[in-house]
């Protein structure tokens, strides 16, 4: 009984965490606590097999699956506190409270006969007892369960399968497209020029210089242009950079402040 009284408040608090945690990961941790505590309660109630299954299937597999999906869709996503449906929280609280009170006060008190205990049922061992039931009277249900699991696996595969909307483009297609672009719009068919070529500096953020000395934007990755981190390829800028990188330079700290300029 001690086990119960220790675990019960923990479980309730952890379960309430499911209601109030802003981050999904915290909620998942709360659920994990509830599940492990449940496993212990199963063990305490003469169900060692379920104890093991609870740990392995729920805590081990299902919770991991939850966390895995949470990682996939973004751990950080926390829902806004503003309720979108007017009165939903209040109504849910009221209905939940009413339901809880009814269930706890009446159904919870519905146990009238004295507890039999599982000593007799578990005499041959809990696993053996369950097996006798499972492959005895419940064998058809087990078969259906097997079918259910296989269906679920197939369903999950179908759902998770990414369907491409267009046919995959082969290398020949790409080459043809490139030449068509050249013919129609004069886009250079060959590789894009690498950055830093003929520049004084060969970093990825420094554009290549054309023979007349002007920088070529196309030589730099679009994402760097998007972030505004392109350095000019002119002499002054390169000299400036070289001076800053020089450990012996005095004005290094000052220059670091104006790095973004």
């Amino acid at each position: 009984m001690t086990t119960f009284w220790i675990l019960a408040p923990v479980m309730v608090i952890a379960a309430l965490g499911l209601l109030f945690a802003r981050k999904a990961v915290h909620a998942a941790l709360g659920l994990a606590v509830v599940m492990i505590s449940l496993a212990i309660l199963y063990a305490a109630q003469g169900a060692p097999f379920l104890f093991a299954v609870q740990i392995i299937v729920y805590t081990g597999a299902i919770m991991m699956l939850f966390l895995f999906v949470l990682m996939l869709v973004g751990v950080d996503t926390s829902e806004s506190l503003r309720e979108t449906i007017g009165g939903q929280r209040l109504a849910a609280a009221a209905v939940g409270l009413a339901f809880g009170v009814v269930m706890v006060t009446i159904v919870g008190q519905a146990v009238v006969s004295p507890t039999t205990g599982l000593k007799a049922a578990n005499a041959d061992g809990n696993v053996e007892g369950l097996a006798a039931l499972m492959f005895g009277p419940y064998v058809l249900a087990v078969q259906f369960t097997a079918a259910l699991l296989i269906t679920a696996v197939l369903g999950a595969m179908v759902m998770a399968h990414h369907e491409s909307l267009l046919p995959r483009r082969s290398q020949a297609d790409l080459a043809r497209q490139r030449l068509r672009d050249y013919a129609e719009r004069g886009v250079h068919p060959g590789n894009a020029p690498t950055p830093g070529v003929f520049a004084r500096h060969n970093a990825v953020d420094t554009p290549a210089l054309l023979p007349d000395g002007t920088p070529l934007e196309a030589s730099i990755s679009e994402s760097i242009i998007g972030r505004g981190q392109v350095r000019s390829g002119y002499d002054e800028a390169v000299d400036d950079m070289a001076r800053r990188l020089d450990p012996a330079s005095d004005d290094r700290a000052d220059d670091e402040e104006g790095e973004g300029k």
Binding site: L19, A92, G96, G100
Partner: peptide, 18 residues
Amino acid sequence: MILFTIGAVGVLVRRNAI
């Protein structure tokens, strides 16, 4: 029963599908 009710209310008030 308490856990069940908490779960039910959670279904009603939480918006994150997970």
